[in-house]
Each structure stands twice: as structure tokens, then as C-alpha cells.
């Protein structure tokens, strides 16, 4: 026949084993979906005795590919490891900034401060804010502490400095880069993303830092909550102010094409 209906029921032993492994993984991972409490990192992925490979564990894959455990300094001068001490088991909102950044960073910081206030008690408890300096030599812990105070930053928000190479790697692996090397060399270009992650469940996304604070807060809520509890629809749309950008001009009809 020239074509066929794909068999929908596959009965091979390989499928049975793969599905069994999937089930094991599901069972092993279905412990915690609610953030706010730090959950233990997932255990080591169990390789099967047979040669059939197991599907990857999303949490482990993201940890290995994207969450470098580099050493950083907080604005209090405390030495921390990025993954072990700040990200592991938490919901995080990460941005890159530097204190002398002229326009974008202050707006971003102001937006995040608004978000932090709107989250109230949930900030710091349900979500940890992490701001990492792209100018680590200048942005010492003291400078960062003063910057945080000047912006009215609340508790549960880390401002971090460290080795430039470490931070560059973090930045790239978290997606705050530009493929154009000229643009990528301009660090102001990397301050526009808020990278959101729910580490224990392996859910990561980003939102533009210049979005309205209400949209950033909603995105954080969608990171904290399982999808079935996401606010959606009317409640989300209308929580932000209605805006119009009516740009219509009278039509210029002079260059409409002639039809054959």
C-alpha cells in the first residue's frame, strides 16, 4: 500500500521496559510540586541493568547543563555556591545587572523591587531573588550592598559578585547572551531578562525585565505553582491596566499595485 496507519499499540519488549522506567521516574519524582519548602535534590538517576537507555531526568539535566556551581560573594561578603546554596531546592528569579548601568538596570531593579513588595511574605520564602553583577571587579560586596539599600531591596534577595569568567559562564548557560558577538560584548544587552526557575521540578523560563511588574509577578506565580493552579484568563489579562496603541493613519493608496 502506498501509505498506512501507524500502529498505535506497540507491543515490543523495549516499549514495555521504557514505559516501566518512565513510571519509575514518575513515581520517584512526584513528591513535591509546591514551592516554599525546600525540597531535597532528586536522587541519582538509576541506570537500568539492561541496555535500554532511560529517558533523562529533567532536573538532573538542567542542573548539569545550566546551573554551574560557581563560587560567588553576596552583598554581605558571604561566600556561596550558586547551585548548592542559592538555587537547589528553590524557586528563583535571576537577573544580571551592574551598579553603574545607566538606564536598563535601574528600571529592572525598580520593577523587581515592586514585584518583591507585591509578593509580600512570599518573597524570600516562595521565591528567591538573585541579581548577579556583570562588572564584578567594580561591584564589590560593599558596592552591591549600598546599591541594594539605595533601591529599597527587601530581605531574601541576593546581590552577587565573583570571578568574571565564572559569571560569564553562568550568563551563557542561563540564556542571557546574544549570538551576535558585537551585541554580546555590550553587557547592557544582558540585563533585560528575568530568568525564572523552579529547580526541584525542573521548570525554567524567562520574561523580559522591562515587562510591567504585574506581568513579572504573574510569571513568578506561574513558576511557583503547578500549571493546574496557574491564574489564567480574565484574571490575568485585567490585572494589568488596559492600554491602547492605536496607530492607524489614513491610508496612502497611491502605490497600490495594478492587478493583471
Amino acid at each position: 500500500m502506498s501509505a498506512y496507519h501507524r500502529p498505535r499499540i506497540v507491543t515490543s519488549a523495549a516499549l514495555a521496559l521504557s514505559l516501566a522506567l518512565l513510571m519509575v521516574l514518575i513515581a520517584g519524582r512526584s513528591t513535591e510540586r509546591v514551592a516554599g519548602e525546600k525540597t531535597p535534590a532528586p536522587g541519582p538517576l538509576v541506570m537500568p541493568a539492561a541496555t535500554v537507555p532511560a529517558p533523562p531526568n529533567r532536573v538532573a539535566v538542567i542542573r548539569e547543563r545550566h546551573l554551574e556551581n560557581v563560587e560567588l560573594l553576596t552583598q554581605e561578603g558571604r561566600s556561596v555556591r550558586f547551585y548548592d546554596d542559592l538555587v537547589k531546592g528553590r524557586v528563583v528569579a535571576i537577573n544580571f545587572m551592574f551598579t553603574t548601568c545607566p538606564i536598563a538596570c535601574p528600571i529592572t531593579t525598580r520593577h523587581l523591587v515592586e514585584v518583591q513588595r507585591a509578593l509580600g511574605a512570599r518573597a524570600g520564602r516562595d521565591v528567591t531573588f538573585i541579581s548577579i553583577s556583570l562588572d564584578p571587579e567594580r561591584d564589590t560586596p560593599e558596592v552591591l550592598r549600598a546599591y541594594a539599600q539605595a533601591h529599597g531591596v527587601g530581605p531574601g534577595w541576593y546581590f552577587l559578585t565573583g570571578k568574571r569568567d565564572d559569571i560569564e559562564r553562568l550568563r551563557r548557560k542561563l540564556g542571557a547572551y546574544d549570538l551576535d558577538p558585537v551585541i554580546d560584548a555590550d553587557r547592557k544587552q544582558h540585563t533585560g531578562l528575568v530568568i525564572l526557575g523552579n529547580e526541584p521540578v525542573g521548570r525554567w523560563k524567562a520574561i523580559a525585565a522591562l515587562s510591567k511588574p504585574v506581568r513579572i509577578r504573574q510569571a513568578i506565580e506561574r513558576t511557583i505553582l503547578p500549571p493546574s493552579q496557574w491564574p489564567t484568563g480574565d484574571a490575568v489579562v485585567k490585572e494589568g491596566p488596559y492600554e491602547e496603541r492605536e496607530t492607524a493613519e489614513p491610508a496612502n493608496l497611491s502605490n497600490l499595485p495594478a492587478r493583471n
Binding site: 544587552q189 544582558h190 531578562l193 520574561i207 523580559a208 515587562s211 492600554e243 496607530t247
Partner: peptide
């Protein structure tokens, strides 16, 4: 800033462009 815009604005759920 690492993301994508129309007419220099990111999508907002309650903004009407036309």
C-alpha cells in the same frame, strides 16, 4: 534586551495594538 518586541514593546495581555 535578550527578548523580542513589536514596536518596541513586549506583549502585554491587556494592550490593544490596533
Amino acid at each position: 534586551d535578550g527578548a523580542w518586541q513589536i514596536n518596541s514593546e513586549f506583549f502585554d495581555e491587556n494592550r490593544i495594538n490596533a
